[in-house]
Design a protein around this nucleic acid. Structure first.
Lengths: 231, 231
DNA sequence: AATAAAAAGTTTACACTGTTAACTAATTAA
DNA sequence: TTAATTAGTTAACAGTGTAAACTTTTTATT
């Protein structure tokens, strides 16, 4: 049975709230998110928003989930645009897509990886799933390349203690799609953290001015990663 | 001539404001910084704080400058605790000190590298200097090791375009203490960004639960960095 | 020592925030 | 057509940063 008219209009309003929120965040920074301001722009009273989100944090969580999915979509699209066997191409494309998405959606990126909303703490059980999607894109590439002998995992990543090894194995076991090496899990964590450090530094302007503008800073490090992994 | 009584008490009050601010941030998160709350705890009215800081942002900037200096002090102390010629030991010690400081001062770390204060944007001219101190500690180690032939800069870092090369040379020229390789500047940026990505991921809990708790995750990546650099 | 000047601190007020309670208007279901 | 559900309203509370006007305390000068 089709959705009732009421359900439809409710879903539309929910989407509009999020759209206005994103738009305002894009204009005035992620921190400027304000229920009253959203309501004002939508021509309704602020408390009315509480029919759609129990409180501000719930709206933030919804925005974060959307952002994660949007990022994951971008990464997956970049991955799918390359030949499956071209691991180097897939990795480079996904890495670039990661940076591009962050530059195109700085407010959402800050929402995901920063802490721009005072007092907000992300409820892990809601955000883990969509967050994992992004990690998996890179994880699969690296793991598949490793399995195909087209990537060399650095020696240090095989020297985890039994304790850490157990945690890694547990994580690897959670992925049914492939046979995942626990050293590959470690590698994925490190690579992702590395990409994140670069992009965050660029967005938050840790680096000297102009140095990251061109994207060459990012590209060189990607090349170094590929060199190191013989990818 | 000695400072007048008034100047002394003023300096003390200024320090107390910052101390209370840090203490509250440590307890309730960096975002909870509130002038009124600080004033309340100090037993004075909120507008009185404006005699010491022109506005909230100025207080935040002062806290950031202090935090940068505190971090730099820790890194320098770690560096000085090692033999000058022991580049590997110096690098490892400084890297560990970096992580330790971040774990011991999470609110200040978030203040420096995150964006926890709504609407606040750091005035570069005030923060660049103390921020540079931290970068220089690692930069010197890497550069000295490279000059001594005890470190191999990855090939990719020598392939910057003329434009980027110019920016790097400019940066290198700003450091009169040593003969700085432009590829070394690049290396320093990358290494720092990498450390930051790791620590931020640990603090902000990007990784799976428990995975970073022991510090082994960090140590393994430090080892891999040393391996890669033949350090 | 008395007085003028400067600094520090106070209260009051404004505009903003998220959120709750009580109430009304609109839509859907019986 | 009536009853129930949902969506939206206004009013209010507690909190925020900050400006203006005023008072108290400390220092400097006559």
């Amino acid at each position: 049975m089709a959705k009732t008219r009421r359900e439809r209009v409710r879903a539309e309003t929910t989407i509009e709230i999020k759209e206005v929120a994103l738009q305002q965040m894009a204009q005035q920074g992620a921190a400027s998110l304000s229920l009253r301001s959203i309501a004002r722009e939508m021509g309704m009273s602020a408390p009315a928003l509480y029919r759609y989100f129990p409180d501000r944090d719930a709206l933030v969580t919804a925005l974060i989930v959307d952002a994660y999915n949007s990022l994951a979509d971008s990464l997956e699209a970049a991955n799918d645009g390359q030949d499956v066997g071209n691991y180097n191409g897939r990795f480079r494309a996904v890495a670039q897509a990661y940076r591009n998405w962050a530059l195109a959606h700085p407010a959402e990126y800050a929402l995901i990886y920063g802490t721009p909303i005072p007092g907000y703490i992300a409820p892990r059980d809601e955000t883990v799933m969509p967050a994992a999607r992004t990690n998996l894109v890179i994880g699969f590439i690296l793991n598949e390349a490793a399995q195909a002998g087209k990537l060399t995992i650095p020696d240090a990543y095989f020297h985890a203690s039994p304790d850490l090894q157990a945690v890694l194995d547990e994580l690897a076991a959670m992925i049914p799609e492939e046979d995942v090496l626990s050293a590959g899990v470690l590698l994925t964590i490190y690579i992702f953290s590395r990409l994140h450090g670069l992009v965050w530094g660029e967005l938050d302007e840790h680096f000297a001015p102009k140095i990251a503008d061109s994207g060459e800073l990012f590209e060189i490090e990607i090349s170094e990663i590929c060199d190191r992994l013989k990818l």
